[in-house]
């Protein structure tokens, strides 16, 4: 079927040229609108810088981020340790650089896992409707009622040993409900469209309809929510690491670097220890939110918020 269309197009080069020039796909149109959004581009640039720092952390860092120098603890910044050292004598600058790697990785993968779970459940609920939908949505309601942070902490207390993978799974298992609701609502509105009826009447399988017709049309809300969710994941990781239940020391993350500031002495005297990682989180989250808002405006130009 597709090769046939391809052959027809090849047979008529004029037509091919015309279609590529005039009619962009909705996705391409959205990207074009996105690129005109100055704030979103600023966000993209900031995020790219952080990603580059994360990728080349080994080259940029001046010290081993987990190595302690017990002769030099809580030091102020100098020529050797640009941002001083923490209470275990580790170099703050190197920890900040390596922290970007852990924080961004966790933010990205926690988002990815949540999107997979959320999209899957939302698709099933929205596509099949009826009892399946009812069951999934009741479950979603219950998950939304349990206080998120308390649930995560309780799971962490039960599991006891936390690694990066377990941490990501816990976050993904507790934060899918909002996305599920959005995907389900999108699917429900698509269900009544004629082209879905068309696909059904020519005998397309459920899987094919979901992946070929529903998901591409729901890609806008998925991408927008995934982006904003990644910002949220970075905040959650940092908050949990800050109170000491996230990624355990000595692995550096921006959140567990700020834990240093729970000592009022360090908070008052060593701003080098806690201000830079805090600003790094703030900037990253701000950049991702700008990108997310830019994507929302691009995919849904009618929305005013």
């Amino acid at each position: 079927m597709e090769t046939q269309v391809q052959n027809n197009m090849d047979a008529n080069p004029d037509l091919t040229a015309q279609t590529t020039e005039k009619s962009l796909s909705p996705f391409q149109l959205a990207m074009r609108r996105f690129l005109k959004n100055k704030l979103a581009i600023a966000g993209l640039i900031i995020l790219t810088i952080f990603v580059i720092v994360a990728v080349f952390a080994d080259v940029i860092a001046t010290h081993n981020p987990t190595e302690s120098n017990m002769l030099k603890v809580e030091a102020k910044g100098d020529a050797e340790n640009w941002l001083g050292t923490d209470s275990s004598g580790r170099d703050n600058f190197s920890r900040l650089v390596h922290g970007s790697r852990i924080s961004l990785t966790i933010g990205f993968f926690a988002m990815l896992c949540t999107v997979v779970v959320g999209t899957l459940l939302g698709s099933i609920a929205g596509y099949y409707g009826g009892r399946v939908d009812g069951a999934i949505m009741r479950f979603t309601d219950i998950m939304l009622i349990l206080p998120f942070l308390l649930l995560v902490l309780t799971l962490i207390a039960i599991i006891e040993k936390i690694t990066i993978t377990i941490f990501i799974v816990i976050i993904a298992l507790t934060s899918w409900p909002n996305l599920t609701r959005i995907i389900r609502a999108t699917f429900l509105s698509l269900r009544e469209k004629e082209y879905i009826l068309g696909a059904r009447s020519i005998g397309a399988s459920d899987i094919r309809i979901i992946f070929k017709h529903f998901l591409p049309n729901a890609i806008g809300p998925i991408i927008v929510n995934a982006t904003l969710m990644m910002a949220n994941m970075i905040i959650i990781e940092s908050a949990l690491s800050f109170i000491g239940f996230g990624i355990p020391q000595p692995t550096p993350t921006w959140g567990n670097m700020i834990t240093e500031a729970t000592s009022l002495r360090i908070l008052e005297n060593n701003w080098e220890a806690w201000l830079p990682p805090g600003l790094a989180i703030l900037l990253t989250v701000l950049a991702i939110n700008f990108i997310g808002d830019g994507l929302r405006d691009a995919f849904d130009p009618k929305s005013n918020h």
């Binding site: 905040i235 940092s238 908050a239 800050f242 700020i258 908070l267 989180i281 989250v285 939110n289």
Partner: peptide
């Protein structure tokens, strides 16, 4: 609003202590 939403709760608290208390 953008800054308020992007600042983690605990970091805002530390900044508040640093500025308004110290």
């Amino acid at each position: 609003a953008f800054l308020g939403l992007a600042t983690p709760n605990f970091f805002a608290g530390l900044l508040a202590i640093y500025v308004f208390s110290f």
